[in-house]
Amino acid sequence: MDAGSADGRSIGNPQVSNVATQPALNAVEGYFPTREQYLDLINQLKAEGFEMAVDLCAVDYLSHPGRELPEGITPERFEVVVNLLSLSQRRRCRVRVQVPENDPVITSIFSAYVGVEAMEREAYDMFGVVFTDHPSLSRILMPEDWEGHPLRKDYGIGRVPVQFKEGPGPR
């Protein structure tokens, strides 16, 4: 039933001992590295058998700052979420990195997983999170001359009031 259930093995990470972990994060191993630990952790997880970076997305926690994080992790406005998958061990893990609002810059993990190229561009396009060392960080979904990053919480949905050509008239 549960597609992402962990098999109960403890995932110690001896090399990066100060990376905050949360073993049961909806039954998936969770890691909360800082921005400095991020690339190292990703490389280690890859060496540990997570062959595929399945998903990478960003979340804007502007209006929902209070969320559960392990001790020592300061919640920031943006969070980059990476879902890794191990085909050989049939397990998943999730890496969540806090990215501050005033400096939305994070290392690209393109060097470890080339498959995140489009996903990082999407996160940049939609949230304005800059990925350094990305081969060509440009917008991917929006037009090139678009202003703003649509999925940010302070960006309006852009709803146009529905216009009726003729009023229904008196009844």
């Binding site: 992402g4 994060l25 399945v54 997305c57 979340v59």
Partner: peptide, 30 residues
Amino acid sequence: GEVYSAIESPRGELGCYIVSDGGPKPYRIH
């Protein structure tokens, strides 16, 4: 909470990542 759930669509792994802030609407759906 936040959750990632994946299924096999005809084209491959279709995952849905939802962050909930306790309200009736998803806070973020990816």
